[in-house]
Simulated scan of single mutants.
Amino acid sequence: QMMYSAIGIAMLVAVLLLLKDHRVLQRYTYISMMAALVLLLLPLVPGLGSAVYGAKIWINVAGFSIQPGEFAKIVLAVFFSGYLMVKRDALALASRRFMGLYLPRGRDLGPILTIWAVSLLILVFENDLGTSLLFFGMFVIMLYVATERTSWIVMGLLMSVAGAVGVASFAGHVQARVDAWADPFSCAEKVAACDQMTQVLMSFGSGGILGTGLGQGNSDLIGFAANSDFIFATVGEELGLTGVMVFLLLYGLIIERGIRTSLAARDPFGKLLAMGLSGAFALQIFVVAGGVMGLIPLTGMTMPFLAYGGSSVIANWALIGILIRISDTARRPAPSPAPNPDAEMTQVVRP
């Protein structure tokens, strides 16, 4: 993990050295779309992808396990930023008002329906609820920021719930996660996901306010995922509620600085990109922490900078690097306006 952290910091430095201006990324809007699709489809390639607990989110390369979805979120943020910057005026137009909401025009529903369909395909074929939620949620957040229409948020939430319920009705892996979320103690002896969830909840309970002490918990009862998917339960047991709140506050500071960077950016592409990256980071925290604490069904995503895994560490350091570059560009002095020769000639000729 120290090696992965070193590589991640090197990635941060590389981003700052090579990416002199974040606006360069706008040129690769549609190339980013193709790259993201390739990354998301790699786990489905026979002989390359591998399934863990039913979720096909990993690929094996030269003996290393890589999670392409961690890098896809950054590439997707670039694509969404470039696309929405061009289409935001059309998407902001409303057709009619319904229950206090201005509904978008029918012709403008294509983008969100397409992204919704792709996210459902990820959920169906890869059994990956986490990436599906992150993918679609990031797009809805950026769509709202670009258009300032609350109707997109409401529509996105309704579509997410409808899609998740529809897939859970025939996908056994997703249904097991839903059962483990609804009442894990009733199926703990029959379903492995329920048994894990009961151990996670008891880990939080035994931690109390200050925890059992660093390294003094019983995370081995959760299983091998205690260092990855369920690392937040280990924190809750060993560091207690105090440690959990410290980590959530640190994550909150990163998200707050990302949003401030978005507000400070002078160009629309930078605003959308900073908000998209911050939103993706926040969604990942919510999906993982909410799943572990029983707020939403559990997913297979990793807690940024905390869970074991090289893909997440490297990708999130790159994400921080892009935010730093946008922040640096936003805080540079604005270029002075070019001199107007006509105005100078007028001042000279005037008596």
Rank of each mutant, 00 (worst) to 15 (best):
K73M: 04
M202I: 15
L272K: 00
F80N: 09
S50H: 06
I153T: 15
G156V: 12
F185D: 06
V292P: 00
G47I: 09
F269I: 03
S327W: 01
F98D: 04
M202F: 12
T299A: 13
S228G: 10
V75K: 10
E189L: 12
L12M: 13
L241T: 14
I314M: 07
I66F: 04
A330F: 00
L18V: 14
E344C: 01
F224Y: 09
E70D: 12
L239R: 06
V75A: 11
F224R: 10
Y251G: 01
A55R: 08
L253V: 03
V348K: 13
S132V: 13
E344W: 06
G213L: 07
A36L: 04
A92R: 14
V191N: 12
L41S: 11
Y28T: 09
I322H: 01
I66R: 02
T212M: 12
R96N: 14
S203R: 01
Y251F: 15
N60K: 14
D179T: 13
M155I: 15
S95W: 11
F247G: 07
F185C: 04
A264E: 13
M33P: 03
V178K: 04
L48T: 09
P104D: 10
L201H: 11
W181T: 06
A176T: 13
A264I: 07
R97V: 14
V140F: 10
M34T: 08
G291L: 09
A55M: 06
G137H: 05
G100V: 05
F269M: 05
P339L: 15
G309Y: 02
N316R: 00
Q216F: 08
I320E: 01
G211C: 08
R23D: 08
V200T: 09
G82S: 10
A94D: 10
R107M: 08
Y102Q: 09
V52F: 07
D342R: 11
F71K: 02
G294V: 14
M301N: 10
E237C: 08
A182Y: 12
S5L: 06
T346S: 10
V140T: 14
A233K: 02
D89Y: 06
L93H: 08
T29D: 08
L248M: 15
N316P: 05
L120K: 04
M85Y: 03
L91E: 02
G54R: 10
